[in-house]
Simulated assay, not measured.
Amino acid sequence: MGGNGSGSVAEAIRRRLGECSPAERKVARVLLAAYPSAGFETVAKIAERSGVSAPTVLRFAARLGYRGFSEFQQALREELEQRDASPLSLYKATGFAGRADSPVEELLNSSAETLSASVRDTFAALPPDDLQHAIGLLAETKRRLLITGGRFSGLHARYLGLHLLQLRTDVHLLPDGAVERTAMLTEGGKRDVLVVFDFRRYEPALLDLARLVVKRGGKVILVTDAWLSPISAVADVVLPSQAPATTPYDSLVPALAVTETVVTGVLEALGDAAQEHMSRGEGTAKALGLY
Rank of each mutant, 00 (worst) to 15 (best):
L108H: 02
R63C: 12
N109T: 11
W227R: 11
V43Y: 05
L194Q: 04
P127V: 02
A33S: 14
L209F: 01
V214N: 02
S102M: 15
V223L: 15
A75P: 14
H277I: 01
R14T: 02
F123G: 06
S229I: 01
M1Y: 05
G188Y: 00
L17P: 06
V119Q: 04
A287E: 14
V262C: 04
V52F: 02
A269E: 07
L228T: 06
H133D: 07
F72D: 13
L155K: 02
I135T: 10
A210N: 00
A117E: 15
V43M: 09
R168K: 05
K142F: 03
T94D: 09
L174H: 02
V195M: 02
G150Q: 04
E11T: 09
F72A: 09
T259H: 04
L207D: 08
V266K: 01
Q242A: 11
V214G: 00
T284K: 14
D192F: 06
R158A: 11
A273S: 14
E19L: 14
E81Y: 12
L90Q: 12
G217H: 05
A178Q: 04
A269T: 04
I231N: 10
R25E: 14
L138W: 03
R67K: 15
R59N: 15
A183R: 14
G283R: 15
V52I: 09
L206E: 03
P240K: 04
G2T: 07
M1Q: 08
P127I: 04
D121K: 07
D208E: 13
L76I: 13
P22N: 09
S111I: 08
P55M: 03
